[in-house]
Design a protein around this nucleic acid. Sequence first.
DNA 1: TCTGGGGTCCTAGGACCC
DNA 2: TCTGGGGTCCTAGGACCC
Length: 448
Amino acid sequence: MPERHILHIDMDAFFASVEQAANPRLRGKPVIVGGNRSYRSVVATASYEARAFGVKTGMPLGEGLRLCPQAILIPGDTAKYADTARRIFTLLNDLSPAVEVFSIDEAFIDLTHVHGPLSPPAPPMGLPRRPTFGGCPGSVADPVEAAYLMKAMIRHHFKLTASVGIGPNKLIAKLASGLKKPDGLVWIPQAQVQAALENLPVDELCGIGPRTKGHLLNLGVTTCGGLAQIPIRLLHQKFGIIWGDLLHKMSQGVSESPVVPYTQAPEAKSMGHSHTLNHDARDREDIETTIQMLAEKVGRRLRRDKMQGKVVTLVVRLAGFETFVRQEVQPAPIDSGAAITQAAMAIFDDMGWRGRPVRMLGVSAGALTARGVRQLELFEEERGERRLIEALDRIRDKYGERAIAPATLAYSQVWDDHYALKGHGRLTPRAVIRESPPEADPLLRGES
DNA sequence: TCTGGGGTCCTAGGACCC
DNA sequence: TCTGGGGTCCTAGGACCC
């Protein structure tokens, strides 16, 4: 087996960099992209200028602004970042045989079949040519040159920088990309893996988090070199067979995980939404409204992807951060907001809530399957409901997600908070699904 | 560091069936 | 049945990633 050459590419301060690329006035300035304007939100990404002040991803927004009061705060726009990422990955995919999308701003690329002398390459000048990596006409000589070209192409087309790592497998490639940031390029060939790992803290490896780090510390292990010395039987005993084996391999820089092209990526297994309330909820009504809003969003996504879920999961986080996760298998797969709401509320009512203040709620659908062509089997009444749901979806497709909503949602504080925090101007939908007589409906009375 | 929102995978125990 | 063992489904929780 020849040595594999796996490349990991990680966009630098991605969300903040996208904003800076789009708006010259943000360049060179500390920028914080944070989910929304709630005091409870966190830093999604900080530009390198803001990081210089100690601002970090995941930090409470308030703390980030305390460290760097002059930072420009931008509410995140996930759809925009996802679209930029999609265009970047498409570009890389055009150049190379297989791109695996690992997260919104990271990808793995298998360059094993890129051959040639491994000489120090020169960064390309001007407009990068359009090479292919893999033996086709115009192909580049080696993985390092390929990496330079990818970085140059991304810089040219998107005004963004990326850090790249190359290694004999995904584990080492990902480690390498994190060693020099931003705009880095680090290659760790197989012959240098052991030396690179010897004194590396264990939690630098992807997959070892704070908990595992703590357990390893109890065994007197802090570095990968130290972990490699632990007898595998002890790892089995402490962590189980699967995780124990994996830890042992990781400590030696061994990883067999293949690069799975995104064209062959497995279908999503679950989809869900969660929301941390601006203020802890004590009323069942507020909780129900929030659950309904989340369930409607989940249903909408399911239908858009032509999926249905057989399992509904409800997450309830109390003010003290105690978190409950409850799920229930449904009699039949569902995809409507109403059905998901009903299932989630049934779970909630079985939980024995007892009025404790609720901080966060989450609703998700699991055990997803493609929606079959079963519509013809539906009863007349169900066909009517189905037609209504599809008509509402068409309205949202055309006029936006907030164009129409159930009246209980449309007039709720939850709706206002949620969409106000997302930076939208107008709060009330243009139309509501009437659940009350017209005379009780301010919109229909022309008061909006 | 009073801690968002989107996911994935693994473990362990109980129910139930053969 | 005061019994063994295997398989599958279901649920709760934990750990990790960005």
